[in-house]
Design a protein around this nucleic acid. Sequence first.
DNA 1: TTTATTTTTGAATGAACGTTCAAAATGTTA
DNA 2: TAACATTTTGAACGTTCATTCAAAAATAAA
Lengths: 195, 195
Amino acid sequence: MAIKKFDVDVVLEQAINIFWQYGYHGTSMQQLLQATGLRPGSLYREFESKEGLYLLALSRYAADTITTVNARIQGSSSVLDGIKSILLDLFEAAKAKDYCGCFLVKTQLELSAHNESILTNVSEEFAKIEANYCAHLKTVFSPEISVQYAKQLMLIIFGIRVYSYQSEQPADIKEFILSILPWLKDDSNKNIKQG
Amino acid sequence: MAIKKFDVDVVLEQAINIFWQYGYHGTSMQQLLQATGLRPGSLYREFESKEGLYLLALSRYAADTITTVNARIQGSSSVLDGIKSILLDLFEAAKAKDYCGCFLVKTQLELSAHNESILTNVSEEFAKIEANYCAHLKTVFSPEISVQYAKQLMLIIFGIRVYSYQSEQPADIKEFILSILPWLKDDSNKNIKQG
DNA sequence: TTTATTTTTGAATGAACGTTCAAAATGTTA
DNA sequence: TAACATTTTGAACGTTCATTCAAAAATAAA
């Protein structure tokens, strides 16, 4: 029997790139076929439909997001330092000339009136991301405070993701972040939970 | 000679509703024709193209936004109170079950890789909105601080607009806002500029 | 080699897309 | 009423859309 000529993971990554840039309705199958090098039959056999491919691309993107966050936090000297550097990374990423925000956010906004099945997916993924931040925060703050801070964090991240399209960035980004989320400021916070 | 049967302003408002909900690529001419009650010929004679209609709808939406902001501030006991209530309004609006965020934000995200002519428009409108907030803030704070706070405000507004799609709102929204933008807190700020 | 199973191929499909335009209708002006 | 400028009408246009499927190719197992 014949063997697959393509790597599903690679194809998914290529699909993410296109969908992320151009959106669901803004992406044509032709673009996807060109980007992946697949023929219609192969693509449809593997992913069933444009929506099927999108759904898989989306959840793979979301998984990557959480992986990246956790890696950044574990690679930092403290949870708060990790979060700080994640926010700095977001500003940094926005400088790229092909910057295109967050795939999940774009999906949410584009499809909010359209496609329920994709949207429940997005909501779930955001909940996971928020819960992940919350879990990290709980190693530093009380559970109640952590819930609250995680909400703030998500809101600020959304803000950064969208605001970065416009205007130049603040002169001192670090200061800008800390003025909005002052609890990120000092690592003496590390002991607040116990103290 | 024949006379126009439709009111351009009404048609624009109807177009805004559809575009706002479904996005540019997600809206078909058929939907627009149905929503406006126009025939293709009339619509094209008046607006030239789908993009022409979108552009006009967009700038009318942006103008309305600034008008609303200024009305809210002028109707409040102070600039900061006005801004506070604008933010509360945003949260309130998000409770509507047909909530669909900000038309400008959705446009920015959907078309960032597509349509330059529409995007320069969006950037300009955002700059106007930020400048408008900045002007109001300058009646309270120093020019430098006002610029900084206006940036914060825009970022938070973007954040609220997107975050509102997800999850339930914070228990105490007022407190939530003030914890992120503490300078909105006390109206004693009113005198900071002079003091 | 043969058989069985899976995958690739790519032309074809019908539907939906944005747009056009000649003809009819409309109402003002002379 | 006649001449006119303007607007409406809606069928038709060519294109692009997502998707299908019968035939060919590929490889494993028998």
